[in-house]
Design a protein around this nucleic acid. Structure first.
Lengths: 358, 358
DNA sequence: AGAGTTGTGTGACACGTTTCAGCGCGAGGA
DNA sequence: TCCTCGCGCTGAAACGTGTCACACAACTCT
């Protein structure tokens, strides 16, 4: 009901000019203490709230950064988002979270909206492999940081995790555990960079171990979700001979596969070993704790936000165009738990017996 | 690099006035076809993008609605967010997702930011039980819809699920299954409305069944997370006599409790039955599929967004202040799965035997 | 005492858009 | 022929803020 109160009304109530009120808000040190307090009192009395639109119009750019992810429902991305938000908040920026569900159309629409908002910058896990909307954004002068995407391909900073190594670590581990019939549950290799790299890493582990590449089967899924993992699990169960190990490109898939194994009475890891990717919290908390390739989720988001803020500062202070794009690459780490480790799962079984014996 | 191009440059290139360009964008029907196409061509050539800040400054309010939730990492809330976003997109609005982690400070800060953005409206699951920041927002003229919160307390619309019934359903079920030593894992009853109501429902199930209320124990947790559930599970395991059933105020807690039971070799549901709340996707996909009180997550978000959009339209078209606040209450539904149902879990066990027998 | 200096505050302009009164013009009716 | 009307377009006035050149007063230094 109460109409929006502007800086002008504050000024008249405090008996000063609008410029002074603006100074109180933005450079409090240049205004005398007495006046400042008078203005602040007026602000409180009127319940004045800055109009961010007007600020942005004046300054040309918003104090917000867009974060565009493939799936908000995936805990991996919410953790990345938390990291980004923390870094952004420190620098006085807000984060606008956008979800694409891997859809090129949704991605384009979100980027369009973000461009209209004149966001400070955009952190994005691209859904469109052509990166065309990303380039368009850069042409419009918006800083972009690519998440989980190859550094060299685009004229932008990037933060990623070495997916090739990640895939290799997982399959090396399974080979060491003696598995000779492994299947990888993966997304579309042409569409998603992560899917491509993790598969390549897996293959390199096979060749390094002098195993023929065709010992690594593939089940392609339409999405990185638990439901898709369940379907993949059914397909794996139907295969003869049944694979003895499954490497999933993502923990949600792994949880789905695990679930279909348990439902079918297939023991994990005794009959089938499973390794996931991302090491989300649900992985450790699964009924058969899931081995997984850990990525520094929070750090990815945090670093990306820091990078983009730094880029903007350089760009502003120094000569424009002088910015050197940085490419941060983290190294993933294999976390072995019961789902792929016979020894660990034995410990669990012993505990089981003891407990049920009392 | 390319400086922001404004409507004025488009106008000169197309040889028309700025007003005409604006009309092409907002009321294409009032401008002649030839001119319209000329303008559109100029827009394409220059790569013009509307400046949303300027629009907002002029129109007074943003085409965005804020969604403030207690925990973005909780799949329940991401599903609510998807519903809200879908409804908002239909009406041409964007959704700004904010996370409070149940912190009063973060909530206040986010609402402050949203107020500065002059958002169209706010959908919120309040973290501050006093609702004071919510009232402040309403005074500033921002429409608010409360999610999962009692309708009557605030001067606002609300969308909620009957938590009292939900709690009752869960405990009734456990009583029918013959449990006489039940424990509820719950958040702080004074701070969170949901915790309070679900507990009250649970108690009413006890008294309706002529059971003494003290047969329902309580474990209070500091947060609705898997980690907190794990800790609660440890505490439950240490109790003597050990409870035979656990009702968790949320699925994340239930997953944590389930995990600690499995780790300790306690069979679910044979030794301990577990019922969760929300029926997130992970519940069905858990290794012991989780019984849960289902809430229409997507619908909650969708309805809330629709309500707030409708409120704004009425408010704008008719006399202001004439809006009648609506309170939508959904009814929850108990979904029984293996974690609390001996029969179902038997089926699973038979399957196990058959499979491992081949 | 005059010149420089520092500390405060003023007021107008610019940012990019929407909106609205109004203008020119050709067609149709009297 | 004149009047009216509607179409298509123009041009200027807002919207609320940040910035900047400038004004004014009170000191300090020589």
């Amino acid at each position: 009901m109460s109409a929006a109160v502007s800086i002008r009304e504050v000024a008249t109530l405090a008996g000063v000019s609008v410029g002074t009120v603006s100074n109180v808000l933005n450079r409090p040190d240049v205004v005398a203490t007495a006046t400042r307090e008078r203005v602040l009192a007026a602000i409180g009395e009127l319940g004045f709230v800055r109009n961010e639109s007007a600020r942005q119009l004046r300054s040309g750019t918003a104090r917000a950064i867009g974060l565009v992810v493939l799936d908000v429902s995936n805990p991996f991305f919410t953790d990345v988002a938390r990291g980004a938000e923390e870094a952004a908040t420190e620098a006085g920026h807000a984060v606008i979270l956008c979800n694409t569900d891997e859809s090129v159309q949704k991605e384009a629409r979100h980027l369009e909206l973000l461009a209209e908002q004149r966001v400070h910058s955009v952190l994005i896990t691209p859904a469109d492999p052509s990166l065309e909307p990303v380039h368009k954004l850069r042409e419009r002068g918006v800083s972009v940081v690519l998440l989980d995407h190859p550094a060299q391909l685009a004229d932008a900073c990037s933060v990623s995790v070495d997916d090739h190594t990640g895939g290799r670590l997982a399959v090396e581990h399974l080979l060491v555990m003696g598995h000779r019939n492994i299947v990888m549950v993966n997304g579309n290799v042409n569409r998603l960079y992560q899917a491509r790299e993790r598969y390549a890493g897996a293959i390199s582990a096979m060749t390094d171990a002098d195993r023929p590449a065709d010992e690594l089967g593939v089940v392609e899924v339409p999405a990185f979700t638990v439901a898709a993992g369940l379907a993949a699990g059914e397909e794996i169960l139907a295969r003869t001979p049944r694979p003895t190990a499954v490497f999933c490109a993502n923990d949600l898939l792994a949880l789905g596969v695990l679930q279909s194994m348990v439902r079918a009475g297939v023991r994990v890891p005794d009959d089938v070993a499973i390794v996931g990717y991302d090491d989300i919290d649900f992985a450790a908390a699964a009924a058969v704790p899931l081995s997984s390739v850990r990525q520094p989720r929070w750090l990815i988001g945090h670093t990306a936000a820091e990078l983009v803020i730094a880029e903007a500062q350089e760009h502003g202070a120094d000569k424009p165009g002088h910015h050197e794009h940085r490419h941060v690459v983290f190294t993933p780490e294999l976390v072995v738990r019961s789902s792929s480790d016979f020894q660990r799962s034995k410990v669990r079984h012993r505990t089981t017996k003891r407990s049920s014996g009392r």
